[in-house]
Computed example of a mutant assay.
Amino acid sequence: MEAKPVIDYSQYYQVGGRVGIDIPLANGTIFREWGIIIEMEQDYLQLRLSRDILPQEMKIEVGTIFLLVTGKEGAGLCCRAIVVAESSRRVVPLRLISEVLIYERRNFFRIATYLPMAWQSCRSLSGREIREQWEDARLFRAWHWSELNEAVPMMKPLTQDQLSRFQQMRESLKVKLQPLAANISGNGIRLKLPQPFQVGDRLALQFFIPFSKPNILEVVAEVVWTAPVISSSSVEPFYYTAMQFYFIDERDRENIIRFISLEQLQQIQQLNGNQSRPLPEDVPLLPEELARRRLRKILSVAVFLVVLAALAAWLIPILKDYYSGKSERNLIEQSFDKGIKQYRSGKGANGE
């Protein structure tokens, strides 16, 4: 297997350099911040953020993906980075995880992975029927999850009619999940499907996200692009199908983005091992090192005070003589003034 080329990130990012930061939020927006690189070693760096307090919806935790930007969009460069250690301060430890590319902002970060999921075509349904079916499916997932996990009750209890209807729909709403190769983001997904679809077609999708509650997400997506998969084999044809999410709950979108971050972190750990390390401030100092630092600090203060005292001893007599009229400069000024007066008085006596 050919070795993956090592990227020299120091060509693009240096200690002391300022970088822009794009961070995707669960509501579909991009949070923009900037920071200063205070440490860098190969693909590992520490970034000091410009803000002491981040917005409430912005959480920086292990697995959060940043986009580090230099320059302006269209003319600058960017690289993806992932948070590799916890930090409660403004200093964030990151590891660079992608190539350095021309900066073209996208709505969300993407990842290629295998995702347990299922899909169904909605061609025979109207827009209203698709939405009603999606809402029923989401409500069923929540009810089924609370039924399996009694410690997690539903926020709003179902009516008797809903309970009766879901009991009848239990079999029809069951889905068989299978791992599919997917390129997924918080805004959409691309799949390789065994049948062609047209732009504008809608599909009902179910994703398995292990930490979500319920752990099966219901989403409706709309086809925006499709193309046949070029293959030299004689197997059944497949079609690349790119879709954007049409009906999706924002909490489910947040879980998808979190899933992307955790998957990316797992891939990095598999490639490089667990290379997260504490910040320098977190490393405890030995007593000898602590004593040396204190001694250096005391000596620095002492030298500063000695220099300040010498400067004061030199300046005070000069200033005292100047303001008392005894300085050399004042004697010259007095002689000059006396000469001017004599010249003027002599000029007046001659009648000139």
Results as ranks from 00 to 15, higher is better:
residue 345 S to K: 15
residue 330 N to H: 12
residue 229 V to F: 03
residue 296 R to P: 00
residue 186 G to S: 11
residue 99 E to D: 14
residue 73 E to S: 06
residue 156 K to V: 14
residue 123 R to F: 03
residue 244 Q to F: 02
residue 35 G to R: 08
residue 117 M to V: 08
residue 78 C to F: 12
residue 332 I to P: 01
residue 334 Q to E: 15
residue 47 L to D: 07
residue 103 Y to E: 12
residue 271 L to P: 00
residue 43 D to W: 00
residue 21 I to N: 07
residue 38 I to F: 03
residue 219 V to D: 07
residue 342 Q to F: 14
residue 137 A to N: 12
residue 266 Q to C: 03
residue 154 M to H: 04
residue 222 E to G: 02
residue 123 R to C: 02
residue 171 E to T: 09
residue 47 L to I: 11
residue 315 L to H: 12
residue 154 M to V: 08
residue 254 E to M: 08
residue 307 V to H: 15
residue 221 A to D: 02
residue 206 Q to H: 10
residue 195 Q to G: 04
residue 131 R to W: 09
residue 221 A to P: 04
residue 59 K to Q: 08
residue 115 L to D: 02
residue 259 F to A: 03
residue 56 Q to M: 14
residue 95 R to S: 05
residue 344 R to I: 10
residue 169 M to Q: 09
residue 352 E to A: 06
residue 285 L to D: 11
residue 268 I to L: 08
residue 296 R to F: 09
residue 168 Q to K: 15
residue 288 E to R: 13
residue 202 R to S: 09
residue 344 R to F: 08
residue 352 E to Q: 00
residue 195 Q to P: 02
residue 350 N to F: 09
residue 256 I to D: 01
residue 180 L to Y: 00
residue 72 K to D: 15
residue 295 L to K: 07
residue 213 K to D: 01
residue 349 A to M: 13
residue 224 V to C: 05
residue 221 A to W: 01
residue 223 V to T: 02
residue 53 I to W: 04
residue 230 I to D: 00
residue 112 A to M: 02
residue 28 G to Y: 10
residue 35 G to Q: 05
residue 331 L to M: 12
residue 324 S to C: 06
residue 252 D to Y: 13
residue 174 K to N: 14
residue 324 S to H: 11
residue 149 N to T: 01
residue 53 I to P: 04
residue 284 P to D: 01
residue 112 A to K: 00
residue 220 V to C: 07
residue 192 K to D: 01
residue 124 S to M: 11
residue 247 F to T: 08
residue 225 W to D: 02
residue 213 K to T: 03
residue 238 F to S: 03
residue 68 L to K: 10
residue 270 Q to E: 12
residue 260 I to D: 01
residue 50 S to R: 14
residue 291 A to W: 15
residue 14 Q to N: 06
residue 24 P to A: 12
residue 67 L to H: 00
residue 199 V to Q: 15
residue 40 M to K: 07
residue 279 L to E: 07
residue 341 K to M: 05
residue 322 Y to T: 09
residue 163 L to H: 11
residue 241 T to F: 00
residue 106 R to W: 05
residue 290 L to Y: 05
residue 77 L to Q: 12
residue 206 Q to T: 04
residue 292 R to T: 03
residue 30 I to N: 07
residue 336 F to M: 07
residue 242 A to D: 02
residue 92 V to D: 07
residue 138 R to P: 05
residue 152 V to M: 06
residue 90 R to I: 04
residue 292 R to W: 13
residue 85 A to V: 05
residue 263 E to K: 00
residue 14 Q to S: 13
residue 36 I to A: 05
residue 46 Q to Y: 10
residue 41 E to M: 07
residue 60 I to L: 14
residue 39 E to P: 07
residue 110 R to F: 07
residue 331 L to K: 08
residue 61 E to T: 03
residue 102 I to Q: 13
residue 250 E to T: 14
residue 212 S to Q: 12
residue 227 A to P: 10
residue 19 V to T: 03
residue 176 K to G: 00
residue 347 K to Y: 13
residue 106 R to H: 09
residue 225 W to T: 06
residue 253 R to A: 14
residue 129 E to Q: 15
residue 88 S to I: 01
residue 122 C to W: 04
residue 54 L to H: 13
residue 328 E to C: 02
residue 171 E to S: 11
residue 149 N to I: 01
residue 32 R to H: 11
residue 19 V to C: 04
